[in-house]
Simulated scan of single mutants.
Amino acid sequence: MATATAPADFDVHKQDSLGLRVQHVLHANPVLGPLAVLVLAIIAFSIVNTRFFSAPNLSLVLAQVTVIATLALGQTMVILTAGIDLAAGIIAVFSGVLMAAFCTRAGMPGVLALILGFACGTAMGAINGFLVTRIKLPPFIVTLGTLTIFLSLNSVISNSETVRGSDMPDLMTWTGSTIPIGNFRLTYGSIIMLALFAYFYYALKQTAWGKHVYATGDDIEAARLAGIQTPRVLFSVYTVAGLLYAVGGWILIGRLASASPNVGTDYNLDSITAVVLGGTSLFGGRGSVIGTLIGALIVGVFRNGLQLGGVEVVWQGFAIGLLVLVAVSLDQWIRKVKT
Results as ranks from 00 to 15, higher is better:
V237L: 09
L58C: 04
A241F: 06
K338D: 12
A126C: 07
I127A: 13
G89V: 02
L323I: 05
A88S: 14
A113V: 04
W333I: 11
V67E: 05
G310F: 12
A82Q: 06
G96D: 01
D270S: 15
H24L: 10
G285K: 09
L112Q: 03
I298H: 01
L204S: 05
V78T: 08
L252R: 05
V156A: 09
N183R: 15
G117T: 07
G305A: 07
G145P: 01
K336N: 10
Y245V: 09
L330V: 14
S54M: 06
F94L: 09
D11I: 14
P139V: 11
G110L: 10
D266N: 14
A195N: 09
G117Q: 05
G321M: 09
A4H: 06
V313C: 00
V78S: 05
R185F: 07
V240W: 04
F45E: 01
Q206L: 11
K136C: 00
L323T: 00
G285C: 03
T230R: 08
R232Q: 13
F118Y: 07
V324T: 04
L325T: 15
I228P: 00
G309P: 07
V22I: 15
K211G: 00
A101V: 13
L293H: 03
F235Q: 06
F10W: 08
Q229C: 09
S329I: 10
V37L: 15
A223S: 11
F52Q: 02
A119M: 08
V37N: 09
W174Q: 14
L194F: 15
Q75F: 03
L144M: 12
G74E: 02
A41R: 09
G110M: 13
S158M: 05
L144T: 07
G254K: 12
N128E: 08
P231V: 12
Y214W: 09
A319P: 01
F53S: 15
L306I: 03
I79L: 15
A198R: 08
G129V: 13
V142G: 05
A257R: 11
V314I: 14
R224G: 07
P139M: 11
D9L: 15
W333Y: 14
L40P: 02
A195P: 08
Q229T: 07
T70E: 02
V314F: 13
R51K: 07
V93T: 10
L60M: 07
F302Q: 01
S59C: 02
I68M: 15
A296T: 06
C103H: 03
A101K: 12
M99V: 11
Q75W: 04
W174F: 15
L73C: 10
P7Q: 08
L112R: 00
F184G: 09
N159C: 00
I90P: 01
G295S: 08
N304H: 12
D331L: 10
A208M: 14
L40G: 13
H27S: 12
A226N: 13
V156H: 08
L325I: 15
D167Y: 03
A106V: 12
F94M: 03
N29W: 15
A6Y: 11
K211H: 12
K136M: 11
V93W: 04
S17E: 14
R303Y: 07
V39P: 04
A55H: 07
V247T: 05
A241R: 02
G295V: 05
E161H: 11
G291E: 03
T148S: 15
